[in-house]
């Protein structure tokens, strides 16, 4: 081959079709927005119809959305929507449910302990580790600023 490695990578970049970014962004916006609107709908429902306190609404809505995300993952529908929606299904809390339920389903065949339970967090694990860590750091900064 007559190319150097960098020349070849530049050439490959030119040859490879790009992801349709504007189409992807638009669909992600619409689907992600729709999921959040459904969440808001549940929020209104729990507050006005069921009559939960604001504190309890904040717990009930995520429980409902995570349940729905897990349910649609189990029904083999969430991944089909995600194929088109991309970040629109990944970012909301339903995407978090999908990231935990899908490896749990996949690796059940390797057993309940070393398969399902151990592999359940392979995708969501890093989100938990860095999410919790960054919340601690932010919390510490907030505490120190208050003390000053």
């Amino acid at each position: 081959m007559k190319y150097s490695k960098q020349e070849y990578l530049d050439y490959v970049d030119k040859k490879s079709p790009d992801s349709p970014i504007w189409k992807n962004v638009l669909i992600a916006f619409l689907v992600g927005g729709a999921i959040c609107t459904i969440g808001q709908g549940f929020s209104e429902f729990y507050k006005n119809v069921v009559g939960l306190s604001e504190e309890n609404v904040k717990t009930a809505v995520p429980i409902t959305m995570v349940f729905l995300g897990a349910l649609f993952t189990g029904l083999d529908l969430y991944n089909k929507l995600a194929k088109h929606a991309g970040a629109g299904t990944l970012v909301p809390i339903t995407g978090f449910a999908n990231a935990i339920v899908s490896p749990a389903m996949e690796f059940k065949r390797e057993g309940w302990v070393l398969g399902l339970a151990a592999k359940m967090f392979t995708i969501a694990g890093p989100v938990l580790v860095y999410g919790i860590n960054s919340s601690i750091i932010v919390g510490l900064i907030y505490y120190l600023i208050q003390k000053l």
Binding site: G74, Y78, N79, A85, G86, S102, P103, I123
Partner: peptide, 8 residues
Amino acid sequence: FPLEYGGQ
């Protein structure tokens, strides 16, 4: 990824 994981 697992088959049911929603990726693009």
